[in-house]
Amino acid sequence: MDRRLTPATDRVALRGSGIARDMLADGRPMRVAAPVADLLRAPGGARDRQLLHGADVTLIEERDGWGFVQAAADGYCGWVALSALTGERPAITHRVTAAATHLYPAADFKRPERGSLPMGARLSVTGTEGRFARLADGLFVPVQHISDAAAEDPAEVALRLIGTPYLWGGNSRLGIDCSGLAQAALHGAGIACPGDSDLQRDAFPETETVQRGDLLFWPGHVALALDARTMVHATAWTMSVITEDIAAAIARIDAAGDGPFLGARRPRLDDRIAFP
């Protein structure tokens, strides 16, 4: 079993998962309240991925201020600080579609901001005041930065994050890695996508031709095609999200000993996630 997709710790398994453990848990629905929360391999351990504000999870075990959860969006499992979670789950109505946005105490952009949220954060909007949306927690966000409809083009979503610093396991404008960028782009278009590049490669069918929106793979790396010649990716080469010529990238990565190019895969446009 792949530990990343296995809803069980060494002590507790999610009831109904078919996994044998000494204890079974029904699981408690929770939601990420922090702007971004690290999803860790072990309590206080290394980061595998990140969960964004508004992400729904199932809490399976609590241990010393940490919770073992399974993310609803992609099934990814790991440990997250319990302080980043909430049991309050008002209806989700919108997502942040700008690269990032600010939260305000009133419908006034001149007021000091109370925080920020990354692209992909899920929101509960209860009304509007002028050019601001009022959230269930009483804060406000610019209406220009949110939407209740998925984007039509994953590549356009990825391009919003150009210049974002590279961060291993990152999933947001604060820092993102290659598979985080691919997932952000596809999820922004309402298309299901796993969290890591090897899982992404296994999830989608091969294609001999390359077109906009295809995923391009190397060992441990993934990029998103903008067309047959150009791609966008989060790369440790520049420590940022960049566009690059595909042929030049293949040659560069081979020369660095990080190849070979493993080909292209085409996301399943009919495999949708709930949006917002």
Rank of each mutant, 00 (worst) to 15 (best):
V222A: 06
E208P: 13
R212S: 13
P205V: 12
E206L: 13
L216F: 05
P219K: 02
P219E: 03
P219H: 00
L215R: 00
L215E: 08
D227F: 09
A228V: 02
F217K: 04
G213W: 06
G213M: 06
D227E: 11
R229H: 15
A225R: 00
A234D: 07
V210P: 00
L216K: 00
A228D: 14
G220W: 06
T209Y: 03
L215A: 08
H233P: 02
V222H: 00
T235K: 03
L215M: 11
T235Y: 08
F217Y: 15
L216N: 01
T235E: 12
D227K: 01
R212Q: 10
A225Q: 01
H221A: 07
A225E: 06
R229D: 15
W218D: 08
P219R: 00
A225I: 11
M231I: 13
A225V: 09
D214T: 06
A234E: 09
A234Y: 03
T230N: 14
T230C: 13
A234V: 10
P219L: 06
Q211S: 15
T207M: 09
A234P: 02
R229G: 13
W218L: 11
L216W: 02
R229K: 13
A223E: 13
Q211M: 14
R229L: 12
L216V: 05
R212V: 12
M231A: 15
P205W: 08
D214F: 05
F217M: 11
T207I: 09
F217T: 08
T235V: 13
F217H: 10
V232D: 04
T207K: 01
W218R: 01
V232P: 01
L226W: 06
L226S: 08
E208Y: 06
V232E: 10
D214A: 06
L216C: 02
W218H: 07
L226T: 04
V210E: 09
Q211H: 13
H221S: 05
H233S: 09
V232G: 02
G213A: 11
E208R: 14
G220Q: 11
A228Y: 03
R212N: 07
T207A: 13
A234T: 03
P219W: 03
T209W: 04
A223W: 05
A225H: 00
H221D: 12
R212E: 10
F217E: 07
W218T: 07
G220A: 06
D227R: 01
L215T: 10
Q211A: 14
A228G: 05
E206T: 14
P219D: 07
L216R: 00
A228E: 15
